[in-house]
Simulated scan of single mutants.
Amino acid sequence: MGPKANLQSMASVCSLRLQTTLLRRHRSPSYVSKCRNRSILCFQNIQTDRDSRNGFKEESIRRRRDVLIQFLFCGSSFHSIFAGSASAETDLKEDFRIYSDDSNKFQISIPQEWLVGAGEPNGYKSVTAFYPTEASNSNVSVVITGLGPDFTRLESFGKVDAFAESLVSGLDRSWQRPPGLAAKLLDSKAGNGLYYIEYSLQNPGESCRHIFSAIGMASNGWYNRLYTVTGQFLEEESEIYRSKIEKSVSSFKLF
């Protein structure tokens, strides 16, 4: 039974008790006044409980959305990273190779000629990036971050459509005066145990940045971890990188 049903049940019980008491006793003015006051107090307590529950729920949703916004910003603002060693095996099909990370239990297909960079682990966070050899703002990154005990599954963030809408609206600052970052949701879907989100980001006077993102969750045996895969390219580089980045992000798998 949910919070709303609980509150309705409480109200029904309170009302029934008041009605039963009134039927058993004389309806003196003083007694009616006393019962009226008790009824008001009872419903005030119910309303206070409802407000408290709603406030807790809204705070929990806001906090979860902020967690995801932080993770996505980490991936979408990534441009370059120092190259590091990592295990990889080659897949010759369509000029892609499979990168496997045995310690973090994921794999992803990346363009054959792209470089791999791994950041130094920082507490519960690690970053792995894939980027072209030529100078470019386009790349794919995998950010892994530890989660609190209240995040037990991906649905803890909400259903994919509602989550994506809330997330992108949380990034959008185009309504400010002067306008800030404009964020636009393009697509969202769930599949293979992951959330897939497509959206765009554009600062005033700058090129539009297109984002493909895959979000998943897995446990390392001690705590749950959030995997945020972010592929990005500038609008003017769409013909060169769009299909590569889209395929790379959609190939991400946890094992």
Rank of each mutant, 00 (worst) to 15 (best):
V168H: 01
I81M: 13
S33N: 14
R173F: 06
D49I: 11
D187V: 06
P3T: 10
R24M: 13
Q47K: 14
R242M: 07
L167N: 00
Y195G: 02
D91A: 11
D91G: 11
F96P: 04
G55Q: 07
C208N: 13
S213V: 05
Q232E: 10
R153L: 08
S15F: 12
R62C: 05
K159R: 13
D66R: 10
S100R: 15
F151I: 15
V127A: 01
K244D: 07
P149A: 02
L234C: 01
S169F: 02
N122G: 04
N6M: 15
R209D: 03
K57T: 12
W114V: 04
F163E: 00
H79T: 13
N45Y: 12
I61S: 04
W175K: 13
I81E: 08
K247T: 15
E206I: 07
L181Q: 14
E58Q: 12
D161F: 00
N45E: 13
A183V: 09
A86P: 09
S213A: 13
A214G: 03
S174L: 00
Q44D: 11
S126I: 15
A183L: 05
Y124I: 07
N203E: 15
G193K: 06
Y199N: 04
N220I: 09
Q176C: 10
S33F: 12
Q232C: 14
V249L: 05
S30Q: 13
F130R: 01
S52K: 08
K125R: 13
N122E: 09
E94Q: 15
I240C: 10
L234R: 00
Q19E: 08
D51Q: 15
D49N: 10
A162W: 01
G231K: 00
S250E: 08
A129E: 09
N224F: 03
V160Y: 03
N137S: 11
S77T: 14
R177I: 08
K159A: 14
S80W: 02
